[in-house]
Simulated assay, not measured.
Amino acid sequence: MLGRTYAGQNCSIAKSLELIGERWTMLIVREVFLGNRRFDEIATRLNIARNVLTARLTWLVDEGVLTKVRYQERPERFEYRFTEKGIDLWPVIVSLLQFGDQYYAPDGPPVVLRHKGCGGAVDAHRTCATCGQRLTARDVTGEPGPGARPVAA
Rank of each mutant, 00 (worst) to 15 (best):
E41D: 11
R149G: 03
I93T: 03
V65P: 07
S12R: 13
W24P: 00
T127P: 00
L60R: 05
L60M: 14
E73C: 02
G3E: 14
L19G: 00
R38L: 01
P146Q: 12
A137K: 04
I28L: 10
V52R: 08
G120L: 03
F99I: 02
L113Q: 12
S12L: 14
G35P: 08
A153L: 09
L19R: 06
Y6N: 09
H115C: 15
D123N: 15
N51A: 12
M26G: 03
I42H: 09
W59Q: 15
I20G: 02
L135T: 01
F78T: 05
R134V: 13
T25P: 04
E84A: 13
P150C: 06
G108A: 08
Q9D: 10
C128K: 04
P150L: 12
K85L: 05
P146I: 02
Y80I: 11
V61A: 00
A7R: 12
A129I: 01
D62I: 00
C131G: 08
V111G: 00
T130S: 14
L60A: 03
T136F: 05
L17S: 07
E73W: 06
Y103D: 03
G8F: 06
E41F: 01
P110F: 06
Q98D: 01
V69W: 00
P110E: 13
V92I: 15
R114Y: 00
E84Q: 13
M1C: 06
E31L: 02
I87Q: 12
W90L: 08
D101S: 02
Y104G: 02
A55S: 12
T127I: 15
E79A: 13
L66C: 03
Q102G: 05
H125M: 07
T127R: 14
R45H: 13
D62N: 01
G86V: 10
G147M: 04
V52K: 09
A105K: 00
E73F: 08
D88M: 11
T83E: 05
L60C: 04
V140R: 01
